[in-house]
Design a binder for these strands. Structure first.
Length: 470
RNA sequence: GCUCCCAUCGUCUAGCGGUCAGGACGCGGCCCUCUCAAGGCUGAAACACGAGUUCGAUUCUCGUUGGGAGCGCCA
């Protein structure tokens, strides 16, 4: 395989908002395909809509891509900067008779569509300027340039995921290529840019399937080679409805802030619509090795947060302690206001990490579960802990304390002492341990008690325990 | 309205004419256990419907129903 015959993929978001979850999946699939084949993955910012495109959105998309670990090759390409080239192509089509000037006013077309709708007819441009001579045009009137599309026959999209999709050409109208202000439309711009960038495979959302046929017409008019298309089924919200703001968690940033790991997102999004037998846990390396567009499913999938949580729990457990501690601290520092851990707190966090990470499904939970390690002193009790520390329990706690105070402050020695004490008092270990846990952590659930006592140290532990012993 | 796409447990999916329809999440039970987890075992849970084709349809064809997308001088 020569360098030039390798696939060229691209992700082409329009910068009108955050990188959302659907876009992230599209980007992921393109990226995987490029990495799988040793091809190129390009990023093109489709900012031809000057009204709605913002630099903030561009920045958000780049940040999101980087967080997801989806690295693109070469500098990102800004579509608006290529308007001159787009116009050039439109002019060439005009000259070749594959496009024509349309002088219909916007309001004229709006009422045309209204009438078509009322009459139950398909809403399409009726070609009113298609065959008129330029001399009929009102002098100096604004015009758009439209494609003189093929009317007979059909346009076939050979789709990597959907198979052969046929569109009768008489169902497609003459789309606008150049607006009356001379700027290119999306339809023209994509085709020209994909061609100029050497894009060989266009993998995008299924909402573009209809556009594929129209773009193929432009490509045919220019006599260019067509890229292969692959249209990904859309992602729906948990209720099966279209994913919208109502469901929250639209942007990848939102997922980051909810404490999900990038590797979780890659695995989850990949499995949403793609499969490799019964495999569920798929590392990014494996994904690159296995990815094939033929295995992409055809039907829309729903977001399932329970499964996301479960996967995230897996990746949290699989992350090395030091790395995870680093993630957790920077997560805290991203909070508003930022929380910065003391040296001591960091050391405790790292030491407790093996126990902590087994209990957390998200970074949020991880940090919450580690709360009692971050600061010194007597704990405030949450509801469940308060319920545990009844007057009887507090009295028992005082007795346990005396038993513990005499031992070495190691997890093993503490546990042995506690067991002995429980046995001597005719209690189960749990009855002794729960009040201890409540006083030590302020919660009814925590990592293993004796480990935590040892980790906190004799002095700090006794301060916390004595506060609730009666 | 017109064009196009889709349809297996609640959810994500495996299946590519003959399977006890498999796995995962979630849910129930049991085990382990100082709590919560993690882990192990285990249970309930699906081929939307109707016609064909075929010796035989979850699988192929058509239709119905139900979802979804598109029909802009937005992308």
């Amino acid at each position: 395989m020569t360098e030039t015959s390798k696939p060229v993929l691209r992700f082409a978001p329009s910068p009108t908002g955050m990188l959302h979850i659907g876009g992230a999946r599209t980007a992921l699939f393109n990226w995987l395909y490029a990495r799988h084949t040793g091809g190129t993955f390009l990023l093109r910012i489709e900012d031809t809509d000057r009204e709605r495109s913002t630099p903030e959105a561009v920045a958000a998309i780049l940040t999101g891509m980087r967080w997801m670990g989806l690295t693109w090759d070469g500098p990102e390409i800004y579509q608006a900067a290529r308007a001159g080239r787009h116009r050039e192509v439109a002019e060439a089509m005009l000259a070749a008779g594959r496009a024509y000037r349309c002088y219909a006013r916007a309001d004229e077309l709006t009422s045309m569509r209204e009438e078509q709708k009322k009459a139950g007819k398909p809403m399409r441009y009726d070609g009113r300027w298609r065959d008129r001579d330029a001399s009929e045009a009102p002098p100096g009137a604004p015009f758009v340039v439209r494609l003189k599309a093929e009317i007979q026959g059909e346009t076939i999209v050979h789709d990597l995921v959907l198979g052969e999709v046929r569109f009768a050409n008489d169902q497609l109208d003459d789309m606008v290529l150049l607006r009356s202000d001379g700027t290119p439309t999306y339809m023209l711009a994509v085709v020209v840019d994909d061609h100029d960038m050497g894009v060989t495979h266009v993998i995008r959302g299924a909402d573009h399937l209809n556009n594929a046929a129209r773009q193929l017409q432009i490509i045919a008019a220019m006599g260019w080679p067509a890229p292969a298309y692959g249209h990904l089924p859309l992602i729906n919200g948990p209720d099966g409805q279209k994913l919208s703001k109502r469901h929250g968690a639209l942007s990848v940033e939102a997922y980051r802030d909810m404490g999900y790991l990038p590797e979780t997102m890659r695995n989850y999004l990949l499995r949403l619509g793609w499969s490799h037998g019964d495999d569920e846990i798929i590392s990014t390396d494996q994904a690159i090795q296995w990815f094939n567009p033929e295995a992409i499913g055809k039907s829309a999938a729903r977001m399932d947060f329970k499964k996301l949580d479960n996967l995230n729990g897996h990746y949290i457990r699989a992350t090395p302690d030091a790395t995870l501690a680093g993630e957790a601290t920077s997560f805290l520092e991203r909070e508003n206001p930022p929380r910065v851990l003391s040296e001591k707190a960091r050391a405790r966090l790292l030491m407790a990490m093996p126990s902590l990470k087994e209990r957390a499904k998200t970074l949020v939970e991880l940090v919450q579960g580690a709360e009692f390690l971050f600061t010194d002193g007597v704990r405030d009790l949450d509801a469940a802990a308060a319920k545990l520390l009844t007057p009887e329990a507090r009295a028992g706690l005082a007795q346990t304390l005396t038993a513990l105070a005499a031992t070495d402050w190691t997890a093993a020695a503490l546990e042995e002492a506690a067991r002995k004490h429980a046995e001597g008092s005719g209690l189960k270990l749990g009855q002794v341990a729960q009040p201890l846990r409540a006083a030590l952590t302020g919660k009814a659930a925590s990592p293993p008690l004796f480990e935590m006592l040892a980790l906190l140290g004799r002095e700090e532990s006794l301060i916390r325990l004595r506060a609730y012993a009666a």
